[in-house]
Amino acid sequence: MDTAELRELLTPDGLRLLDSLPPFDERADVVAEVSRLRKQGHAPELVAAVLTQARLRARGVAKFGEFASRMLFTEAGLEQATRLPVASSHAGRYRRAGVSRVADLGCGIGGDAMAFAALELGVLAVDRDEVTAAIATYNLAPWPAASVELGDASEVPLDGVDAVFLDPARRTAGHQATSRLQDPAQWSPSLDVAFGFAERMPTGVKLGPGVDRDLLPDDAECQWISVDRSVVEVGVWFGDLARPGVRRSALVFGPSGPAEMSAAGDTEDVEVGDLDEYLYEPDGSVIRARLIGDLARQLEATTISRDIAYLTAPTAEQTPFAQCFRVVETFPLDEKRLRQELRARGIGRVEIKKRGVDIDPAVFRKRLQLAGSNEATLVLTRVAGRHTALLCERV
Results as ranks from 00 to 15, higher is better:
residue 315 T to L: 06
residue 314 P to A: 14
residue 337 R to Q: 11
residue 302 T to Y: 04
residue 333 L to S: 10
residue 373 S to C: 04
residue 378 L to Y: 08
residue 335 E to Q: 15
residue 308 I to R: 12
residue 326 R to C: 01
residue 328 V to A: 01
residue 377 T to P: 04
residue 367 R to W: 03
residue 340 Q to G: 13
residue 301 A to D: 05
residue 306 R to P: 00
residue 335 E to M: 10
residue 355 R to F: 03
residue 359 I to L: 09
residue 301 A to V: 07
residue 304 I to H: 15
residue 366 K to R: 15
residue 307 D to C: 04
residue 337 R to C: 01
residue 321 F to S: 13
residue 349 R to Y: 08
residue 369 Q to Y: 04
residue 361 P to R: 06
residue 385 G to T: 03
residue 320 P to I: 07
residue 318 Q to R: 14
residue 303 T to S: 13
residue 368 L to S: 12
residue 341 E to W: 02
residue 366 K to H: 15
residue 306 R to M: 01
residue 329 E to V: 00
residue 341 E to I: 01
residue 376 A to T: 06
residue 366 K to V: 08
residue 315 T to Y: 05
residue 367 R to A: 12
residue 361 P to Y: 03
residue 359 I to K: 07
residue 354 K to N: 05
residue 305 S to E: 09
residue 356 G to N: 10
residue 379 V to T: 07
residue 318 Q to L: 04
residue 299 L to R: 14
residue 349 R to H: 13
residue 323 Q to H: 13
residue 381 T to I: 03
residue 368 L to Q: 11
residue 384 A to K: 15
residue 328 V to C: 00
residue 307 D to S: 14
residue 378 L to A: 05
residue 319 T to I: 00
residue 359 I to G: 02
residue 302 T to H: 12
residue 375 E to Q: 14
residue 359 I to A: 02
residue 353 K to D: 00
residue 312 T to N: 12
residue 367 R to E: 09
residue 379 V to G: 09
residue 314 P to H: 10
residue 382 R to H: 05
residue 375 E to M: 06
residue 365 R to N: 03
residue 336 K to I: 02
residue 361 P to Q: 07
residue 344 A to W: 00
residue 377 T to G: 08
residue 313 A to P: 02
residue 373 S to V: 10
residue 319 T to R: 06
residue 336 K to R: 14
residue 338 L to Q: 10
residue 320 P to W: 08
residue 371 A to G: 04
residue 357 V to H: 12
residue 329 E to P: 02
residue 367 R to L: 04
residue 354 K to E: 01
residue 358 D to V: 03
residue 332 P to T: 04
residue 308 I to L: 07
residue 381 T to M: 07
residue 320 P to K: 13
residue 310 Y to N: 14
residue 321 F to A: 13
residue 342 L to R: 13
residue 326 R to Q: 10
residue 357 V to T: 05
residue 359 I to V: 14
residue 358 D to N: 12
residue 317 E to G: 14
residue 380 L to V: 01
residue 347 I to H: 09
residue 365 R to L: 06
residue 343 R to D: 08
residue 323 Q to L: 12
residue 356 G to Q: 09
residue 348 G to V: 02
residue 334 D to H: 12
residue 324 C to N: 03
residue 303 T to D: 01
residue 369 Q to M: 11
residue 312 T to C: 10
residue 338 L to K: 11
residue 325 F to T: 09
residue 330 T to G: 02
residue 358 D to K: 14
residue 367 R to D: 10
residue 356 G to P: 11
residue 335 E to A: 11
residue 375 E to F: 07
residue 334 D to N: 15
residue 342 L to Q: 12
residue 325 F to I: 02
residue 341 E to H: 09
residue 355 R to G: 12
residue 303 T to Y: 04
residue 332 P to K: 09
residue 316 A to H: 06
residue 337 R to L: 07
residue 381 T to V: 06
residue 303 T to N: 04
residue 311 L to S: 13
residue 311 L to M: 03
residue 361 P to V: 03
residue 322 A to H: 08
residue 382 R to I: 01
residue 346 G to P: 00
